[in-house]
Design a protein around this nucleic acid. Structure first.
Lengths: 280, 280
DNA sequence: GCCAGTCTTTCCGTTGGACGGAAAGCGGCG
DNA sequence: CGCCGCTTTCCGTCCAACGGAAAGACTGGC
């Protein structure tokens, strides 16, 4: 993977990056400038779309992608032809071809599809918003979500990410996942509310509590009026694959009665995952 | 135009090369029609993924996209870096970045998200597989689907398309949509089972029946052991936006009791769609 | 009506990145 | 061990991509 030759048409990075942390750091998607190859520019264009920018004008895309408008125009045109973007009067949107492609992505395809029916069952019983998270890097990724007609606006959307130390699902990952994860995460505990755990020691105690209880909770640690509860989803071979949980707007009265429901659903999901395709 | 030098990157096959490499004149490349631009090649690569090919080797992708392996290798590499593809030992898959992008696509975002809770309610009452279709071109597109733990394997997956004349949702579109749609579709009525409607006259009668009843049914017209039932979802201004339905494995006993349930849910969906963002 | 500002689209000369054949590396099979 | 298919690196050639310039479309202010 030698870095490409420095000579670039537009601009170039001075020298190879000093290692630092690959992770997801720089490539925010929108902020990414410094495109070099044709493909990366087209992709940068796609990367400008997110939940807050699901409809954009051409020049907005160009600006956010750090591309000349002319270039953006040409590339966007090709994307539209292919179906990756759709063009309306008010701007560009993500095309349905991308959507259909996305349904083939592994994280989505296996777990979420298998889990959905079981999540329904939980919803029927508890009438709370039901979430399914998987671990992705040093965050949890919401792969499926369900809420009844009664619930208000959803807290998070499918595809959202949450930090490990400020979410019930994240605590599950910390408690039952690799130890390295804990050490890595506890380096940087960003506060989201006044109740977010920001001390590594406190977090360690909390994780021990989770391990002892078998479930994790959050109390306004991710956002105000946001109470979470999650249990692990283990494969038959004890491997942790996901965290199943609920979210409520006020402190749940009966944690004790919800946990068994979640556990039953988690076991059901695990059983089916074990039968069908193997973990990964 | 008048291409000058034949020694081009794309063409290059005068008489000079001793090597044979016939290569079809017009390139019959399965799906992709002689792409030229860089972007279109990268996209052609993505386009090789579908439900039957969710994991592919590099050369398989190259073959299906009609690209040289070398080129495919380079492009796939860029896609992997960006997150559009994921590379495992057994081949490439669609990356989760595409999945997350896809969630922003309009068809998915608006209707499916709004409809989901109401579909839950239907599922709760009927215990059947619940489907939500929108019209897309001359087909219906499954944008959301729900099934309980009891139901067996799903008939269709989200993202699937069905012909208008062989699906309950499609009949709804024909009955309440634009008239031109009917004339266009009735030109080519492909049979899927022995019970599929293949005569324009029969279809016309069927559509009238749908208009009279207010709901549509199919009886093994799309596949064996496949019985469908669907109702329209109208916006407050009478515009048809979707079809909501259920699927069963045997002839449903009580159509009469399910239709009201579907209609209530359809009204609920419409009401919320009307309140929030306007149709399109 | 006119001007100013923003966004979209076409045109076209220049050139640097994409192209892909060749070949090495890699594994499996008979 | 030789054959076959897939993956990956290398590198000289050359055309497609690039993007500045400018016209067109549209809005809003005065």
């Amino acid at each position: 993977m030698a870095n490409a030759a420095p000579s670039g048409r537009t601009a170039r990075r001075p020298a190879s990056i000093p290692g630092s942390k690959p992770s997801q750091a720089a490539d925010g998607g929108a902020s990414a400038q410094q495109a070099a190859s044709v493909t990366s520019r087209a992709l940068a264009l796609l990367g400008t779309f997110d939940a807050e920018h699901s409809v954009q004008s051409l020049s907005a895309m160009a600006r956010r992608a750090g591309l000349p408008v002319t270039t953006a125009h040409r590339l966007a045109g090709e994307l539209v032809v292919w179906g990756g973007l759709e063009k309306a009067n008010d701007g560009y949107r993500v095309g349905q071809r991308i959507w259909r492609l996305g349904l083939l992505a592994p994280a989505q395809q296996n777990i979420a599809e298998v889990a959905a029916p079981f999540m329904q069952d939980v919803l029927f019983v508890t009438h709370n918003v039901v979430n399914l998270f998987i671990l992705d890097g040093q965050e949890v990724l919401l792969v499926e979500r369900m809420s009844g007609t009664g619930a208000g606006q959803p807290f998070r959307r499918v595809g959202a990410r949450l930090p490990l130390h400020a979410s019930a699902a994240g605590k599950i990952m910390l408690a039952y996942g690799a130890k390295e994860l804990f050490t890595a995460v506890s380096q940087r505990l960003e506060p989201h509310t006044s109740r977010t755990i920001t001390s590594p020691a406190t977090l360690a105690t909390e994780i021990e509590r989770v391990q002892a209880l078998g479930y994790a909770t959050t109390e306004e640690e991710a956002g105000p009026d946001n109470y979470g509860l999650a249990v692990p989803v283990f494969l038959p071979n004890k491997q942790l694959v996901a965290a199943l949980g609920i979210v409520t707007r006020s402190r749940p009265a009966s944690v004790g009665s919800v946990v068994p429901v979640l556990n039953i659903a988690a076991r059901g999901i695990a059983r089916r995952l074990g039968v069908e395709h193997l973990p990964q």
